[in-house]
Simulated scan of single mutants.
Amino acid sequence: MSPTPAASVLFVCVHNAGRSQMAAGFLAHLAGDRVDVRSAGSLPADQVNPAAVEAMREVGVDIASAAPKVLTAEAVEASDYVITMGCGDACPVFPGKTYLDWALDDPAGQGLEAVRPIRDEIRSRVTALIAEIDERARP
């Protein structure tokens, strides 16, 4: 039986095709079942950015089967942390949530060379987020 996750995290960007998918991929990969991971977009794209998929594959994280999802109030309400990455005013706000805004370049339309540093910055921020979640979960 899996333990109850220490927290639930929702990553949000406009198209849910690059930044939020990479962040969700890293969090699921690095935290495992310790954290419940979601991602969504205010205007979801048809597919995940192929350059983001390849950049993640380079570091051993497979997001090829991920699909962009529409942002819902229910997803925000069900999350302890809501991390936005340029979703503008489209993100609903509920009291009691931890909101973080990560200012990251948008990988949309960018080649692999441009996506790699975005990926690496996301990994660094996700690693710090895991440390924060673990710290808050300590009795």
Rank of each mutant, 00 (worst) to 15 (best):
M1T: 12
S2C: 06
S2V: 13
T4A: 13
P5R: 04
A6W: 09
A7M: 14
A7D: 15
V9P: 11
F11D: 05
F11Q: 05
F11T: 00
C13Y: 04
H15I: 00
N16T: 05
A17P: 06
A17E: 10
A17V: 02
R19Y: 00
Q21W: 05
Q21L: 09
M22A: 03
M22D: 03
A23I: 01
A23N: 02
A28Y: 10
H29N: 10
L30E: 13
L30S: 08
G32D: 08
D33K: 13
D33I: 11
V35G: 08
D36H: 04
V37T: 13
V37L: 00
R38C: 01
S39G: 13
A40P: 11
A40M: 11
G41Q: 01
G41Y: 10
S42N: 02
A45Q: 02
D46A: 09
Q47H: 12
Q47D: 15
Q47M: 11
N49W: 11
N49L: 14
P50S: 09
P50C: 05
A51E: 15
V53Y: 06
E54C: 04
A55F: 05
M56T: 04
M56W: 08
M56K: 08
R57K: 10
R57M: 14
V61S: 10
D62P: 12
D62H: 12
A64D: 13
A67W: 02
A67K: 08
K69N: 08
V70F: 13
V70I: 15
V70D: 11
L71A: 00
A75M: 14
A75V: 01
E77L: 13
A78P: 04
A78H: 08
A78N: 10
S79Y: 00
D80C: 06
D80W: 11
Y81S: 06
Y81G: 02
V82R: 00
V82P: 02
V82D: 02
I83M: 02
I83A: 03
I83D: 04
T84F: 00
T84C: 07
M85K: 02
C87G: 10
G88Q: 01
D89P: 15
C91Q: 09
C91F: 01
P92H: 06
P92A: 10
G96K: 03
G96R: 00
T98C: 04
T98G: 03
T98F: 01
T98I: 15
Y99Q: 05
L100M: 12
D101S: 12
D101W: 02
D101C: 06
D101I: 04
W102F: 05
A103M: 08
L104M: 07
D105N: 13
D105E: 14
D106I: 01
G109K: 05
G111A: 12
L112P: 06
E113L: 06
A114W: 05
A114Q: 14
A114G: 08
A114D: 15
V115D: 07
R116F: 07
D120Y: 07
D120W: 07
D120T: 10
E121D: 15
S124P: 09
S124M: 07
R125E: 09
V126I: 14
T127K: 06
T127V: 12
T127E: 14
L129F: 02
I130A: 04
I130D: 05
A131M: 05
E132V: 00
I133N: 05
I133Y: 07
D134H: 09
E135D: 11
R136M: 12
R136E: 14
A137P: 04
P139S: 12
